[in-house]
Design a binder for these strands. Structure first.
Lengths: 255, 255
DNA sequence: TTGCTCAACTTGTAGGGACAAGCTGATGGA
DNA sequence: TCCATCAGCTTGTCCCTACAAGTTGAGCAA
């Protein structure tokens, strides 16, 4: 007998077969009862093994349908160029980027005024609980949930740029709107983290077990101080972030 | 009766109690049999609920000990400054960074010559399977596994910088060594991705279920072409990446 | 053809039991 | 005092059963 527990043997065998292409992305695995017969194990044991692969993000299951091998088509976001500092574009950067990639963007939108949560306050360098404006949106690519984005603006900024606190989109793009009101961003500070989604996030992004989220926190600075903090929550399986540092001058056009 | 299945109710109740501090990081949860009594559910049902929290990365379990609330003390790595392009430092950037953070670095090391895997070849812009040098290391912080790092150098570079292919550390740091041999890096292209660890990665980094890895692929360019590609695999729960874009001039010293 | 129902599949949920294996503290004996 | 042993706790593995719930396609009726 092997030393590995039986449910791990099941998972390892299936993982190997997925890796070497016996079950390509999109393919359906044999049913639990078939696997149960093949491995001479109870249905529960097979389920434990399959569950391992689900939490590894390799397969997903749905009631009535069976287990399916996950496929990934990743979207690469060039964070260095995402918002051009020198020439703020018209429209928002996300729609532009997605359209340029030949895919269809769609977003829903919400504006709130609320006290700044502790973490946000730290980024914006204001008191925790100070007044802040939250502009929140859900973003889809080809109708697949892609990311949620929450941008916080410090309360003092609203006096200079009142439309921030008004509901509804800012057609020319907030970066451009701010620039037109004398508030230009001269730099960003980005932080990237990953973790498993909360149930709320899993619901919004329609991800099951085994898919982590990628958290992108971008704090924009004007000449003097932070003027906004954007937290974007991506599906980790569909998104990658790119940064260029130093003088690359288009050496990566093909990527 | 609630519409939520019982094992989810168990998970939700415990998650709430963890979130509001009833079980602080490091605390032990009641045993399965206690929870089983409290929720009037079988041990199997309680285990399903606990397993959800494990895959969310909220708690971890060990045989004989029970379930423990995970704690996170994150290490932030400033990728924009990690390797200074203008003034290559002595020694490797990792040891310097960790020591500066008041923590103790430790690493093991390995050098290999091998055909470049497909993905690496694409980054290095060489033929897939072309000769490449792999310098691989495991890194620890305060004896906790922190990351694994694989750096690939294209074969043609070894003629100019033969020590790359020799086993053993390069004391002055490879960036400095390359610079001293007329190969200076003028820029980087970074890609950041996340996913669940393979069983191999989970073993090396000593992470259990519910902790994603953060993959950092950095391709370094000399004047002409890519000269190295470094893939770093971090524990996602302990690491964050920072980037500075534009003119921030030390506005984030405190972070 | 079209549309409905239903049987036969799938996984999901919930319970039961049994024993293995890891950890800890109490209880000894040396 | 020190150390080995062991009882009694913990979770890990594996089996069984039963029924609920989602999906699909065959087949019948209009």
């Amino acid at each position: 007998m092997n030393k590995q527990p039986k449910y791990r043997q099941v998972a390892d065998a299936l993982r190997r077969e997925i890796d070497n292409g016996a079950y390509p992305p999109g393919a359906r695995l044999p049913s639990e009862s078939e696997l149960s017969a093949r491995f001479a194990a109870s249905r529960n044991t097979v389920r434990s093994g399959l569950n391992l692969l689900v939490t590894e993000g390799l397969i997903s299951s749905s009631q009535g349908l069976g287990y399916e091998v996950r496929s990934h088509e990743v979207f690469k976001l060039n964070a260095s160029r995402f918002e051009n500092l020198s020439f703020p574009q018209n429209g928002d950067a996300y729609s532009t980027d997605v359209t340029n990639a030949g895919r269809r963007p769609h977003q829903t939108f919400r504006v709130e005024m609320l006290p700044a949560p502790e973490e946000i306050a730290a980024w914006l360098k204001v008191e925790a609980g100070a007044k802040a404006v939250l502009r929140f949106c859900h973003r889809y690519v080809d109708d697949v949930p892609w990311s949620t984005q929450a941008t916080y603006y410090p309360g003092w900024l609203v006096e200079q740029a009142p439309r921030l606190a008004e509901p509804g989109d800012i057609a020319e793009g907030t970066t451009r709107y701010l620039a037109d009101h004398g508030i230009s961003q001269i730099g960003y500070f980005d932080e990237i983290a990953t973790r498993m989604p909360t149930p709320e996030e899993a619901r919004l992004l329609e991800i099951g077990a085994g898919v982590p989220v990628l958290l992108w926190t971008r704090t924009g600075y004007s000449d003097e101080k932070p003027i906004r903090c954007t937290i974007t929550t991506f599906r980790g399986d569909l998104n990658r972030m790119n940064y260029e540092i130093g003088d690359l001058a288009g050496r990566n056009e093909d990527l």
